[in-house]
Amino acid sequence: MAILVGDDTRLVVQGLTGREGSFHGMRNKDYGTDLVAGVTPGKGSSEVEGVPVFDTVAEAVSATGANTSMVFVPPAVAADAILEAHDAGIEVIVAITEHIPALDMARTVTHLRRSSDGRATLIGPNCPGVISPGKANVGIIPGEICEPGSVGLVSRSGTLTYQIVHELTREGLGQSTCVGVGGDPIPGSDFIDILERFEADDGTELVVLVGEIGGDAEERASRYVGEHMTKPVVAYIAGFTAPPGKTMGHAGAIISGSAGTASAKKVAFEEAGIRVATNPTEVAGIVKETLG
């Protein structure tokens, strides 16, 4: 098994006619993902390499049965695209777009969580997407570094995720699903949302959690793990050397006041009995040891 994306995924790409949207949409298709449609307002009735393009997500859903969307549109219109996907009944919305204003995300995420009756899940924005190796890839994670297996991975970062997946694969530790929840201050899903799914997933034996400085998502996740998880969790945190008050690339990665430091997060994890690796390479070693 896997979480969020898999054999049942029927993908629509919002922004499929754009340069990046078509490049990554087609890479996902080549990986084996069932790419059924694209949406670009005003470009309905055209197609991109044999994939039909529609003017609205609702049309795409009714014509193709799409149940998952990847959002690849510019930041100024991205919140609108997410709301449109939700309105059309899409279950899993993966927003890759970076630099969406926090105000737009606060409103969009509030609306989704309030009105989705447990139906719609937003992953991202500013995330690398979700891959269930061997089944489906929705996003920009390079499929070739993954291997099917039983390690679940959830991360706030993109390339750091690739680095850690690469280390896992090299040690023969395949993955059930790798989820990038994104580096924004207000993500659609946070660690806890994904940990819940991994805990319930038969195909996942252990979860790797990759955190970074800023906010308190890691601290809340550590409490959740301590109270609700039976599966082992291994953590890694980036940003021990980051200076306070500077935004380290991700809008969400900023140490403000005494909150959000890597050291505080490490302490929280260790208090919950979670082992914290000191570098990406060590993650794979600890996972191997834990799984025996």
């Binding site: 970062s157 993109g158 690739y162 990759v210 690339g249 890597a262």
Partner: peptide
Amino acid sequence: IGNGAGLVMSTLDVVKA
């Protein structure tokens, strides 16, 4: 120099270590 905020932060940590 690195690509991606998380990987660069991690690289800083590893250099420090």
